[in-house]
Design a protein around this nucleic acid. Structure first.
Length: 413
RNA sequence: GCGUCUGUCGUCAAGCGGUUAAGACCUCGGAUUGUGGUUCCGAUAUGCAUGGGUUCGAAUCCCAUCAGACGCCCCA
């Protein structure tokens, strides 16, 4: 056992006994997102590195220190750390701006980030997400948030907190950033190391620092005044107000969190996050927002867009474990040639069927059947001669013998 | 990249310087060559993450490495 090969750090096998949970989430995603007119898209897992440095943002941790990047044929290639950039690339490359707006897309698949694993965080992890292109109206924001909430409800997750905020547009946001920096600057040297970094890189992130001394400084009135000031320009403010109106009318419960700042550079105006109290410190199951500047930044026409991503591992850890399904039938017989034929017949009716390929004893076969199947179909010498089969319901123990052609209608799927 | 804790069979574990390395589950075989899920027997770690060290003696103590869990940063 010493030299067996193991999965890489931060990666996991999804074993057969857990696959049904994944399928459950994927099927719900397919069903709910389709019901809003979203179409699935599958983009490559590897992309040119530039896509992410330009799309996700040079200053983000994701691009700076978390990407799996390698050189191949003089090109720098990267395993996707998220999928918005890839979907935007595809939208532009395939001329989807010529389709009638909105263009609604959803995806699922693995993402890769070189990080230290912890609860709810893997190096290879999986997301389901959606992107909607071409609509600047807050109705789009409302539909996307509503759909996220309904998707989570369909998984049986009802007690999650939805938080929303508006970051404003590039104009009003940069004004706000300057004001904030001006207010904090006098105290800069007293802040923790992380905060000092954030001050330059992303001043909005300063707000959620957990260090007590930093919090004390941020609590000062002159900083609080800036924080609570309404910095949104008229248009952004209207957009945000209208979104809240729709959410209220739809009965979506949310809290406004002025400190909510998504970590990726591309977000504008609406940002939102959906959190659970049962996940440990990585408590967001969903994060998303509007990114009106990204399509043009990646070389497409000016196109407003909004989307979200959810972490599948986090979702699955919150939903109740489901028992894997049993086989419909296990055929018990010591006549393999006849059993092959019977098994194929049953399979053609849509049943899941297995039988013993090792010619084990009758009792052993029945024991196996009771563990893996709902029915044991017994095909012995007597049955073969009379052109019959015996069907044993393994839960109730009752057994009947029927003519062979009547077998399918005596099995409940 | 930093911090804390943890690594004994496929799984869950006892052991805490001298044991033949408990036990349970799973798996396999038998009691039981056409009737299972109950029961009863039996099999399955020359091995304690890996590599060094301390010791007469190490799964037990020390160091390093690797891996896992959780937290920080950041994010889904």
């Amino acid at each position: 056992m010493a030299n067996i090969i193991k999965t890489l750090k931060g990666t996991k096998d999804i074993l057969p006994q857990d696959v049904n949970m994944w399928q459950f989430v994927e099927q719900k995603a397919q069903k709910i997102f389709s019901s809003y007119g979203f179409k699935e898209i599958r983009t490559p897992i590897i992309e040119i590195t530039e896509l992410f440095s330009r799309g996700v943002g040079d200053t983000t941790d994701i691009v700076n220190k978390e990407m799996y990047t390698f050189e191949k044929s003089d090109r720098s290639i990267t395993l996707r750390p998220e999928n918005t950039a890839g979907v935007v690339r595809s939208y532009i490359e395939n001329g989807m701006s010529r389709l009638s707006a909105p263009v609604k897309l959803w995806y699922k698949g693995p993402m890769f980030r070189y990080e230290r694993p912890q609860a709810g965080r893997q190096r290879q992890f999986h997301q389901v997400g959606v992107e909607m292109f071409g609509l600047k109206q807050p109705t789009a924001d409302a539909e996307v948030i509503l759909m996220a909430v309904n998707f989570l409800k369909s998984l049986g997750l009802n007690d999650l907190d939805v938080e929303i905020n508006s970051l404003g547009c590039p104009n009003c946001r940069s004004e706000f950033k300057e004001k904030l920096k001006k207010a904090i600057k006098p105290y800069l040297k007293d802040l923790c190391e992380d905060c000092q970094n954030r001050f330059e890189k992303n001043p909005l992130r300063l707000l959620d620092c957990k260090v007590e001394d930093c919090q004390k400084i941020f609590a000062k009135p002159e900083i609080q005044d800036v924080l609570t000031s309404d910095f949104l320009c008229e248009e952004c403010s209207e957009h945000y107000t209208e979104l809240k109106l729709y959410l209220d009318r739809m009965g979506v419960k949310y809290t406004e969190n002025k400190l909510l700042v998504r970590g990726l550079d591309y977000y504008t105006r609406t940002v939102f996050e959906i959190k659970s109290n049962n996940l440990g410190s990585q408590n967001a199951v969903c994060g998303g927002g509007r990114y009106d500047g990204l399509v043009s930044q990646l070389g497409g026409d000016e196109t407003p867009a909004i989307g979200f991503a959810m972490g599948m591992e986090r979702l699955i850890s919150l939903i109740e474990k489901k028992e894997p399904k049993k086989l419909d039938c296990y055929i018990v017989s010591n006549f393999p040639a006849d059993t092959f034929i019977l098994a194929e017949e049953l399979r053609s009716f849509g049943f899941n069927v297995e039988f013993d390929l090792a010619n084990k004893k009758f009792a052993k076969q029945l024991e196996k059947a009771s563990k893996v199947a709902k029915y044991a179909v017994i095909l012995g010498e007597d049955e073969i001669l009379k052109h019959e089969v015996s069907i044993k319901n393994l839960e109730t123990g009752t057994q009947i013998t029927v003519r062979r052609e009547d077998l399918p209608k005596n099995i409940k799927q």
